[in-house]
Write a protein that binds this DNA or RNA. Structure first.
Length: 133
DNA sequence: CGTGTGACCGGCG
DNA sequence: ACGCCGGCCACAC
């Protein structure tokens, strides 16, 4: 649940669909050891080019309990652009390394191979939940 | 209500 | 490959 400070979003095409929660939901679905980028999430949510808004949503994700795997969301170059928003600048990289994601110079190696597109995931059918992931 | 800013992206020189 | 610019959406002044 979002704290009151984040629920006061003004009416918009995002608010009515709970854009924040949708972003968080997608991030939560990113498999361990895989990564995606802001644009892919934005596109998946149908917001097109509003990747920046996804990043803005992530900026508020640190208050969530339990926290979402925000370390698996990087920019289009596989660069850990959000590292400075974690508790410590090195935390994001450490979390990724712990998942087996190699990070060199704030950049994910083999980014293309590890890239996970939410659109690849078959839309939630609820029936096949047993086999998910 | 105009402006500036941002964990962005794509195109172009 | 690098850097600049415009566009996108939401928020804070």
């Amino acid at each position: 649940m979002l704290p009151p400070s984040l629920r006061k979003n003004k009416p918009s095409k995002f608010d009515k669909e709970n854009f924040f929660e949708r972003v968080f939901a997608v991030v939560k679905k990113i498999p361990r050891g895989r990564v995606t980028n802001y644009g892919a999430i934005a596109n998946y949510l149908g917001t097109g080019l509003s990747a920046r808004t996804v990043g803005w949503a992530m900026n508020s994700s640190h208050i969530l309990v339990p926290p979402i795997p925000a370390q698996r969301v990087v920019n289009r170059n596989g660069l850990l652009t959000g590292k400075n928003h974690f508790a410590t600048p090195s935390l994001m990289e450490e979390l990724l390394q712990a998942e087996g994601v190699e990070v060199v110079d704030d950049k994910i190696t083999h980014f293309k191979k590890l890239f996970w597109n939410p659109a690849d995931e078959p839309l939630i059918k609820k029936k096949r939940s047993k086999k998910n992931n």
